[in-house]
Design a protein around this nucleic acid. Structure first.
Length: 422
RNA sequence: GGAGAGGUGUCCGAGUGGUUUAAGGAGGCGGUCUUGAAAACCGUUGAGCUGCAAGGUUCCGGGGGUUCGAAUCCCUCCCUCUCCGCCA
């Protein structure tokens, strides 16, 4: 969330930002609720002060008459205070609800636009393969080589689930190992995170844990959710803590399953493994000083590129436009891999994203560090190291051979133990 | 899942209704002394909200309750430890 004082003092800027990011939020309502909260808080606190004074007097020796009088006064104060506290609580919860709708500020270089079509292409790497035969999509390849089984998964778990089989299993494990080793060398602390997190944590990271529009599976009656990404469990790792300035930047990497409801998502561009309810992902996370976050953001993008260059997957990098940014992100770079089976004649498909969320998440989660005796919110960044299911698409479709087999990228062979699937 | 013991500031730890405005210790920071360091001594040292500030207010695992007044009493949930049960 944004700082309340900042919204109050920069209302026009916040309004403009909401407009270019194409979301519905009402900062004026937030400011009104904030002012109202402060006003009621002030009255509550002055009554509390009276109550405390009253109590202090009663610590000493008093005549019975005086004591009774003070007790009566205390009773009256108590009633007034609880009435005010009740309305304060109401205002607070309204304020909380409204402020969560307000997105992060936006980096000045982010292209303005309404949808992903307005994202700005920054660069391309590699050359999409030109096939001398009719290219198949990963569904066909997966079927022919007995690698992916959607039908059985639909029967057992529902649509948009899948069984990986045979060499695809090893390929998934190899990708995970490949990414984790690179990150370990980059002195990330590698972790294997829980796949479940508490609702307030999920919300603190900026996801909506419940409701129709939520992309998150909540576990009824437990106050917890299945994580949509390890960004949640990594980001909350230090929640409520004050970090040592000399420890920054802190780099964590996490392997987890990711669960997404994807309600209403369907169609040609979501087919097969592209949009599924469960997949495996290695995520990177950085906590740093505000002055470092732009550099760290480039660093994350750079690492992602290295990882996909190592896999020989052709890709392009895009700077996500204002209308396509999620609430917490200040700026986001996506890597889109070339997927020959996507659309009619192949297309780019998002395979990683690296976001600089500045202090938007840190404020809700209470993650700070000390600077000159003052506590400052850290900046938090996240990036995909390997999203396995989509990387499988890219590998199967880009490295398919005329004889129906699939070649494994050279750098992955030490991890798979085979260089070809057939 | 059952029984018991716990959860207090960066850490250890005292505290069972009103001199707790959280004792004391360790650690950190500053200083005295010293060629320098150690030791010793002196001082200082949590966070949030509000406010220009002074100040005020909240926080003793979370939430709720009793009371004029709660770290302290009651209810509830969470977590940790020990033992038992179950189990990859």
């Amino acid at each position: 969330m944004l700082d309340l004082k900042y919204i109050r003092d920069n209302l026009e800027e916040v309004k403009k930002n909401i407009q270019i990011r194409n979301v519905s939020a009402d900062p004026e309502k937030v400011v009104n609720l904030y002012n109202k909260k402060n006003e009621v808080l002030k009255r509550t606190e002055s009554l509390r002060q009276k109550r405390n004074e009253n109590v202090r007097i009663m610590k000493g020796k008093l005549s019975e008459g005086e004591r009774l009088k003070l007790i009566e006064a205390g009773k009256k104060l108590k009633e007034e205070i609880s009435a005010l506290e009740l309305s304060l609580e109401k205002i607070r919860s309204n304020l909380h609800r409204e402020i969560l709708k307000i997105p992060n500020l936006t980096h000045p270089d982010v292209p303005e636009g309404r949808s992903e079509d307005d994202n700005l292409e920054l660069k391309r790497w590699g050359k999409p393969a030109e096939f001398t035969f009719k290219a198949r999509d990963h569904l066909q390849i997966g079927n022919e080589l007995d690698l992916i089984d959607f039908e059985t998964a639909a029967k057992v778990s529902g649509q948009k689930f899948y069984y990986l089989k045979n060499k695809a299993v090893m390929l998934e494990l190899a990708l995970v190992r490949y990414a984790l080793e690179i990150l370990e060398k980059e002195s990330f602390t590698i972790t294997l995170t829980p796949d479940i997190a508490k609702e307030d944590i999920v919300e603190g990271i900026g996801f909506i844990p419940r409701g129709e529009e939520s992309n998150i599976y909540s576990l009824e009656g437990t106050g917890t959710c299945l994580v949509g990404t390890a960004e949640i469990t990594l980001g909350a790792y230090f929640s409520g803590q004050i970090l040592k300035a000399e420890d920054l930047p802190i780099k964590l990497a996490g392997l987890s399953h990711c669960f997404r409801r994807e309600a209403g998502a369907a169609g040609q561009y979501s087919k097969g493994l592209y949009r599924v309810h469960q997949f495996t992902k290695v995520e990177m996370f950085i906590f740093c000083r505000p002055s470092q976050s732009e550099t760290q953001h480039s660093y994350l993008l750079n690492l992602e590129e290295r990882i996909y260059q190592g896999l020989d997957i052709p890709y392009r990098v895009v700077d996500t436009c204002t209308g396509d940014l999620g609430g917490p992100a200040y700026r986001k770079f996506d890597i889109e891999a070339w997927m020959p089976g996507r659309g009619q004649k192949g297309d780019w498909g998002e395979i990683t994203s690296a976001s600089n969320c500045t202090d938007y998440q840190a404020r809700r989660l209470g993650i700070r560090f000390k600077e000159n005796g003052k506590s400052v919110y850290v900046h938090m960044l996240n990036g995909t190291a390997v999203a396995v299911s989509r990387t499988l698409i890219a590998i199967l479709e880009n490295f398919q051979q005329e004889d129906g087999s699939v070649k494994i990228p050279e750098q992955l062979v030490p991890y798979t133990g085979f260089s070809r699937i057939n």
